[in-house]
Design a protein around this nucleic acid. Sequence first.
DNA 1: ATACAAATATGTACTTGAAACACATTAACC
DNA 2: GGTTAATGTGTTTCAAGTACATATTTGTAT
Lengths: 240, 240
Amino acid sequence: MPERIIKAFKNAEIEKISHLDYFNIAVSVDCVILGYEDKQLKVLLIKSDLEEFSGLNSLLGDLVRPDEDLDEASYRILRERTGLNDVYLEQVQTFGRLDRHPSGRVVTTAYFSLLDLHHHQLRLSHNDLRWHPINKVGKLAFDHKDILDSCLHRLRQQVLERPLIFSLLPEKFSLRQLQEVYEAILGTELDRRNFRKKVSLKDWLVDLGEMETDVPHRPGKLYKLNPGLKKRLRARLRVS
Amino acid sequence: MPERIIKAFKNAEIEKISHLDYFNIAVSVDCVILGYEDKQLKVLLIKSDLEEFSGLNSLLGDLVRPDEDLDEASYRILRERTGLNDVYLEQVQTFGRLDRHPSGRVVTTAYFSLLDLHHHQLRLSHNDLRWHPINKVGKLAFDHKDILDSCLHRLRQQVLERPLIFSLLPEKFSLRQLQEVYEAILGTELDRRNFRKKVSLKDWLVDLGEMETDVPHRPGKLYKLNPGLKKRLRARLRVS
DNA sequence: ATACAAATATGTACTTGAAACACATTAACC
DNA sequence: GGTTAATGTGTTTCAAGTACATATTTGTAT
């Protein structure tokens, strides 16, 4: 099999290099798993078990198995680490620096995913898994800080255009909650009145006719995501 | 070395699979090389030399060498295929479907690049290399049609925000030429007056004080890209 | 019961940017 | 020297975004 691939790529110079070398690159995926809590965007990190990075945290990743798609691999990681299945996941960028992994050549594809940190099905797989506020993430293992930053950059770019943000919220939410998530992601304050106008012009929200409870002030209306959009969100990965 | 990586990813389930299997995935890059000619956006394609795809064209790609970065690999392909060095290159997406390569498992990272199709240094490496108008690209080998589409999508998304487009043009160009390139990329017609207003508000252009020659009508002013932006364009890859 | 605090809900004026449209000017060509 | 086909520069209109104000509702403390 390997030889067939090499042959397929028929390149004079390639022949000089041992065929096996071409399979000396491992492929992994890394997931930037994001949640929202206490008015902060948080990322799920695990203590690195490599000596080289002792004391540092890292993203959640794994080698891609020979029989699985890249997207499948990242869904697997999500499932294994959080117990959640139906989450938003988007490929962002692939990192291939030669020295990015101390043990050898590993090319990794970064994904970010958004989930409801208080989802009743959420079961973290490991004691060393912790949610860290985005603003307080320091040095990370590997090039994971770069990966995190590039995912955050993509998220910020997309969040105003497409209804991603709802994956971070529970089924029912108030406009104030929604605004607070935007503010946490964008790192800015938004004008409440303009914000409400803007989202109500899109077709993203459905008024549930219910009210908040257990708030120490006048309760606001509760909304949910327009169900028509929910499908399209999940479907995106398969298509692109 | 391989074993160290496996160990580094310490995952109970992984151990069940033969270690070597993890290096049974090859990594490649594919370049969507775009140029502009005759009011059309064109992509550089080569006849596929795989039996499975006989008669079909494919993008230009190659396996990534064990000692080279992903970005380096795509620069190498560009250099080898076009003789050009100083071109715009941007990573877009990584494709990893199990059956995307008939000879085995190959994960490929797609890049698009923009170059001046009439550059004096352009030397196509191969007789089977041809420029194809993107509107007339039919079936391609592998999943290269998907790759092409995703690169075009990214290009269309970026072209209004950032001054990429100048890589497709010669050093000196008129506003009409510039507008025609935009129209070719976006597939729409633009209002000349609004277009001129819009670009002149950005700091992208420098008036050369020269005029077009050899045009069968009133010649227009010639411009060049603001030199300050040129550096930032090239630098982008390294940073992100 | 009532006043107060704090957040909801809705509305208006102003500014900026995009879209539609018009006309005078210049150079090549016959 | 008139015609043609572009260039070059407006203006008006409309939509979207920003800044800002006021009335309303509920919980809480007195």
